[in-house]
Design a binder for these strands. Structure first.
Ligand SMILES: [Mn+2]
Ligand SMILES: [Mn+2]
Ligand SMILES: [Zn+2]
Ligand SMILES: [Zn+2]
Lengths: 143, 143
DNA sequence: TATACAAATGATAATCATTCTCATTTGCAA
DNA sequence: TTGCAAATGAGAATGATTATCATTTGTATA
């Protein structure tokens, strides 16, 4: 029961919808969730939160540094709890499974490439799109 | 005047809108263009092509391998002529300027990261978001 | 604890990029 | 030239996200 403090320290007041969304990310089996998925999971668990509120809260949490937003292919934003450690993503094109990885060599070479060209890096996104080849992976893109 | 053959060999018949779009990419000062930009540039040059046709043609050219599509931040697809050599992008958050780079070390480490996890790579996208620090860069995001 | 009110919510309208529909036009093969 | 499948263009439809605004709620204060 530390969520209210999380919100407080982020300058957000502790409301029911915000607690529900945060709690969902902390307990969900899926680490990376879209707004639509958050909305549906809350509905399914009997917690009614308006879709507009879901979008608002996700954006607020992102700005507060509680969540990170990613733009995978498919047009919809995906969010995950910000555990403070940067990582990149491998996304399975068949089942949508997301695996995280970190390669300090890649990170270093990115910085170098940008610096050599006079750029000041703010941020980067690296997504590898692939087949996961897991036994449970269906050969069909999940809707 | 070799465009018609390009289209023919791609299995697309040589129509006026398609020739105009292809020619625009071959002559434009900007290498990376969104659908909206293509549409407006054609209008400005007196070549009227419907917006729906622009979208259709861009997608067809992408499928034919003539263009590559990228998803930079900002929600709209960006296209460029496919010159056959893979590269990644550094995008200036202030002026939208795009610079290309290629780092074989990064490429190799990506393949390795995916392989180690049992993935079969289809594709990847690496975008570095930064300030270009060029003298001509305005401190404002261009609309 | 009751009250007051700014902040938050939720239903719904609006927006934006993109795709779809369908009547009309066009490239091109015969 | 003609015939016609393929392509086009105007506008409707879609899907994700944001804006509006009347109503509700968290919380500071009396
Ligand atoms: Mn992640
Ligand atoms: Mn490029
Ligand atoms: Zn999979
Ligand atoms: Zn710049």
């Amino acid at each position: 029961m530390h969520e209210p403090e999380h919100l407080k320290s982020a300058g957000l007041k502790s409301t029911l919808p915000r607690l529900k969304v945060l709690s969902l990310f902390e307990t969900s089996k899926e680490r990376h969730l879209s707004a639509e998925e958050v909305f549906k999971l809350l509905l399914a668990s009997g917690d009614d939160v308006g879709l507009a509120t879901v979008y608002r809260v996700l954006t607020q949490f992102e700005q507060a540094g509680l969540l990170m937003r990613h733009h995978f292919e498919g047009g919809k934003s995906v969010f995950e709890l910000n555990h403070g450690v940067h990582h990149d993503h491998i996304v399975c094109l068949q089942c949508g499974h997301v695996e995280e990885f970190y390669d300090s060599g890649i990170e270093a070479r990115q910085k170098k490439a940008a610096a050599e060209r006079g750029f000041t890096v703010h941020d980067h996104s690296l997504h590898i799109y692939a087949d996961c080849n897991k036994p449970k992976c269906p050969n069909k893109i999940k809707s």
